[in-house]
């Protein structure tokens, strides 16, 4: 089964922000989505779950196995930690998402699945570290039982070790048979877990390259912007 985005475009009254976006994702596959800030990465995530801002006009097709995406087929772990309800304990929040998807919630299993102890269920969001909150957001998406998961910037604000754990977790989700899109600025991290990486610039699709292309100086990347993006990330690493 394949999720296909064909010629997706999103425009606001002020003008277009996404144009000509196409990508495919198979179950069991993890695809990375990267680009500069404001490239429209999060809008693709919102379009996938049908949660675009009210004034956005969408065109193009998003289909699974040739059929338009039904509601609640794709689950999103959003970028902001403020997507967690500050007044509800973690366990109750995971249950909410499961209930919305019409599935039974196994909160301890959901927490253990993202590498958190079961008693995290009783904690409120303000009692979580950044890394724990990211995992809880992921747990809310996974608890829906959706076959397709979109994780928007799941490693922002995390130290390298915590970021590595979250990316490994997502890789494990894909290996378990779900289709995963990871939106991230962290090209190095994406290259380790994705099969392909889609590069965006100012709302336009630049290229889709296999993860193996992101090695050395990125000589096999077709576009100069993709190479610049990759080498810019390598530079700080080289300095370390």
């Amino acid at each position: 089964m394949t999720l296909t985005i064909t010629d997706l475009a999103v425009r606001f009254p002020t003008g277009p922000v996404l144009e000509g976006i196409s990508l495919t994702l198979a179950r069991g596959e993890l695809v990375g989505l990267t680009g500069t800030s404001g490239a429209g990465k999060s809008l693709i995530a919102e379009a996938l779950v049908g949660a675009l801002p009210p004034d956005a006009i969408r065109s193009g097709r998003i289909e699974i196995a040739g059929q338009p995406v039904a509601a609640r087929t794709v689950a999103l772990a959003p970028q902001g930690l403020d997507a967690l309800d500050p007044l509800a304990p973690v366990g109750r929040q995971i249950k909410r998402f499961a209930r919305l998807a019409g599935v039974a919630a196994d909160v301890p299993a959901a927490l253990v699945g993202v590498g958190l102890p079961p008693d995290t269920a009783d904690l409120y969001p303000h009692e979580l570290s950044g890394g724990m909150a990211r995992r809880v957001l992921l747990a809310t998406a996974l608890a829906t039982g959706a076959d397709w998961i979109v994780a928007d910037e799941p490693t922002v604000g995390l130290d390298p070790e915590a970021a590595g754990r979250v990316l490994s977790l997502l890789a494990g989700v894909a290996r378990a048979g779900r289709g995963v899109i990871v939106i991230s600025h962290d090209l190095i991290g994406l290259a380790k877990i994705a099969s392909r990486i889609v590069i965006l610039r100012a709302g336009k699709h630049i290229e889709t390259a296999p993860a193996s292309a992101f090695t050395g100086a990125g000589a096999t990347l077709r576009d100069g912007f993709s190479r610049a993006l990759w080498t810019a990330q390598l530079a700080p690493e080289a300095q370390c």
Partner: peptide
């Protein structure tokens, strides 16, 4: 209007369900 409610909406929660569910405590 909060990101928490938008997150729930993205997974199918209607305004009425949000109002009489998690919104009730807020």
């Amino acid at each position: 209007d909060s990101p928490a409610a938008r997150h729930l909406s993205a997974h199918g929660a209607t305004p009425l369900r949000l109002a009489f569910g998690p919104g009730l405590r807020h």
